[in-house]
Amino acid sequence: MRDPSAVTLPLFDRAPWAQRVGVFDLETTGVDVTQDRIVTAHVGVLDEFGDVVQRADWLADPGVEIPEGAAAIHGISTEHARAHGRAADEVVAEVVAALRALFDAGLPVVAYNASYDFSLLAHEAARHGVDPLREPGPVIDPLVLDKAVDRYRRGKRTLDVVSAHYGVVLDGAHEASADAIAAGRVAQAIAERFGHRLPTEAAELHDAQIGWARSQAESLTEYFIRIGRLDPDATVDGTWPVR
Rank of each mutant, 00 (worst) to 15 (best):
A173F: 11
S177T: 09
S177A: 15
V168F: 02
H174G: 14
V144G: 01
P136Y: 07
A173H: 13
H174R: 14
A148V: 02
S177R: 06
G167Q: 13
A176V: 04
L170T: 11
L133M: 07
T158V: 12
D141M: 04
R157E: 00
V161E: 07
A164K: 15
R153D: 00
S163N: 10
V144E: 03
R151T: 10
P136H: 05
D160Q: 09
L133T: 08
G167K: 12
S163L: 06
G172D: 07
G172H: 12
R151L: 07
K156L: 13
Y166W: 11
V168C: 08
V168I: 12
R154F: 10
A173Y: 01
L159Y: 06
L133F: 00
Y166D: 04
D160G: 10
G172C: 03
P142L: 00
G137S: 15
A173C: 08
A164Y: 01
G137V: 13
D141Y: 01
D160S: 13
R153K: 11
L159G: 02
L143E: 05
A148R: 14
G155K: 10
V144L: 07
H174T: 10
L133G: 07
V162T: 15
D146T: 04
L143V: 00
D150G: 01
A176K: 07
A164C: 02
H174F: 06
D171E: 15
D146A: 12
K147N: 05
E175K: 13
P138D: 13
R134A: 07
T158M: 09
R157L: 04
R153Q: 10
V169T: 09
G155Q: 11
V162N: 12
D141L: 04
S163D: 06
V139Q: 06
L145I: 09
L133S: 06
R157K: 15
D141H: 08
P142M: 07
G167S: 11
R151Y: 08
L143P: 05
P138C: 12
E135D: 15
V144F: 01
P136E: 04
K147F: 01
V144Q: 04
V161S: 07
L170C: 14
I140Y: 07
V162E: 10
P138I: 12
V144Y: 08
V149S: 05
G167A: 06
